[in-house]
Amino acid sequence: METDEYCIKQISVFSENKPGRLAAIAKALMEKKVNILAFSIAEADGFGVVRALVDKPEVAHSILSSLGFNVAFTEVIAVRMKDEPGGLYDIAEILGNAGINIEYSYAYSGKDGAVLILRVDNSKDAIEKIINLGATLLKSSRFH
């Protein structure tokens, strides 16, 4: 199975928990006309990591780096969910049955319906299992 096309490049940005940091990131992306498709903030005491799916990850990486941010690419996968009650449950059950270990996840609901973004230990293995169990994965070409 060709799994690479389902690996999506997420950008992760280290950020202090202080006013204006998210705005600084968003402004930089806006000025470079980078569209943010989904994002989440993971917060620890004193700092956080902003994670975002954007249409132009390379552009985002270079502008944020040049502004001094700590930026990394991280590989994630995107699973389609039914945009109705039980949609998350269906997917969660599949992931549980497949024994996939999730580092973190976040969701968004857009024009293509609801999508669950997953960061897993082993993307290739997870992609195969999820497809075999009948769920739909979004290709990276839909984002970038």
């Binding site: 997420q10 992760s12 280290f14 993971a42 990394a72 991280t74 580092e103 960061r119």
Partner: peptide
Amino acid sequence: EVKKDSFSDKITDLM
């Protein structure tokens, strides 16, 4: 300051 090459997107690594 966290160095650029040691930044991982995992919160647990940072902790």
